[in-house]
Design a protein around this nucleic acid. Structure first.
Lengths: 149, 149
DNA sequence: TGACACTGGTCAGAGTCTCTGACTACTTTG
DNA sequence: CAAAGTAGTCAGAGACTCTGACCAGTGTCA
């Protein structure tokens, strides 16, 4: 009985995701960025280059805005983000990445590149390309925030 | 500038995973299985047909055995699992799925099948096959518990 | 066999994450 | 302008997770 790949697709997606996240986290901690948590990172990851509103962060991370506010508070105390007034709406503030976060993001990007290279070595470049292609396509029907092509 | 797929692979994996998990959860709640949490479900998902030790569940879910014990306590109270003595080791107990959990798993499996069908309709069967193939291969280097082929 | 290291699991305590509900301030709509 | 809606906060509670300390049973090896 060959049990090959009768694993459900959800777990199949989750396993490499977790492996990648773990790698990033470990490297970041080595580099001294050990004063934020995974939950905070998942929010920080979604902040755009021009800043993003709290509510939007909450929606994309699928958490309540209260939770998002709580996490952004921590990130602000730790110096990873700043909140600036939104010029277009006096109720709102834009959460922006501080330089400290940009440094961390550069490291994270390097780890992603490294891991992707390992994956490509294991899969072969053709299969790796197919994987990214399929996932990108899948995003259209699984990510409510995907830009329409 | 075509921004297509410059999203990092981690997020690309995570998005469909989350979409699937959400669908399963929603359907389970509809069916009356609303007395367990995502964290509990992630542990329950890993219980094998012959029962699994707490320590092993903890390792695979990458949580401490204390946390795993806490979650299994909840699941036991809610009637989803039972703990039976491990005949091969007097220290250990095997966490086993109760009938209630088996019913829930059947529903979950149906939702997975349904979602996979949708994905296949969107990607085409060739690309869907390639996706599962790539992910299965990737498991070899991202899942410490992957059975060697 | 008997000491010793190891493993499966629990208890206690603390910190983090997340939610619901209620509220203020500002914006949009008719 | 009044009503409805949106951005964000405050307060309180429940859920998740961890570290550290511990007990009981197992494996090893002189």
């Amino acid at each position: 009985m060959v049990a090959e790949s009768d694993l459900n697709t959800g777990l199949l997606l989750f396993l490499p995701y977790r492996a990648l996240e773990n790698r990033i986290f470990a490297r970041l901690a080595e580099a001294g960025f050990d004063d934020f948590t995974p939950a905070q990172a998942r929010v920080m990851q979604r902040i755009g280059p021009n800043g993003t509103r709290l509510t939007e962060l909450a929606e994309q991370a699928q958490i309540t805005k209260q939770t998002a506010g709580f996490l952004v508070d921590q990130l602000e105390k730790a110096g990873y983000v700043v909140r600036v007034p939104d010029p277009t709406d006096k109720r709102a503030r834009l959460v922006c990445l501080a330089e400290k976060a940009a440094s961390a993001q550069r490291i994270a990007a390097a780890v992603v590149a490294e891991v992707e290279k390992e994956w490509e070595a294991h899969l072969g470049s053709r299969r790796m390309k197919q994987l990214r292609e399929a996932l990108t396509l899948l995003r259209e029907i699984t990510d409510p925030w995907a830009e329409p092509s």
